[in-house]
Amino acid sequence: MELTRRRFFQLTGSACVGFAFGGLGFDLSPIEAHAQQFKLEKARESKTICPYCSVGCGAIVHTRIERDQRILNIEGDPDHVINRGSLCSKGSGLYQFAENENRLTRPMYRAPYSKEWKTVSWEWALDQIADRIKKTRDAGFIHKNDAGDVVNRVTNMASMGSAALDNEECWLYQTLLRAMGLVYIEHQARL
């Protein structure tokens, strides 16, 4: 039986060494031990919380110290009092959510009426976006309502997002949007 990389992680990712033998029909303990040592010597450990549902399970991330410095494995954190090391059918695959070939790695731009994306630099993209924001805001800014009350709002721009942001990012995000004058501020909580 060929020990695929995936199967290897499934087995070694578990803290239960005893089950390894039953799973494959031969003794994996030496490989388990090797993997543990590998994680200790070649990887850095960091703690995280699952980004999927709202239970808030703890997980341990092992990141390779050398070469690509990418993730080696993600497994349940046995010291986390909610999940005590276990992860669900989604959480068990966290590794592949982060190390995923479909991830975006460069800013992209689609011009009006264009049929394709163009890869662009961050500097260019943010300059363009800031320019669009300013032009749109300045053209549509509402200083007073019909009754003459000062309202200082912008209704020709809207933003949706996001429960995928960290708390600190959420706070910063609403700060910037409100300073811009936006009132159309919406996110997943209502959907």
Binding site: C50, G161, A163, A164, N167, W171, H187, Q188, A189
Partner: peptide
Amino acid sequence: ESNVQGSTDHAL
């Protein structure tokens, strides 16, 4: 979602 509580607390 993992931070729909926090993002609501922070008024998105």
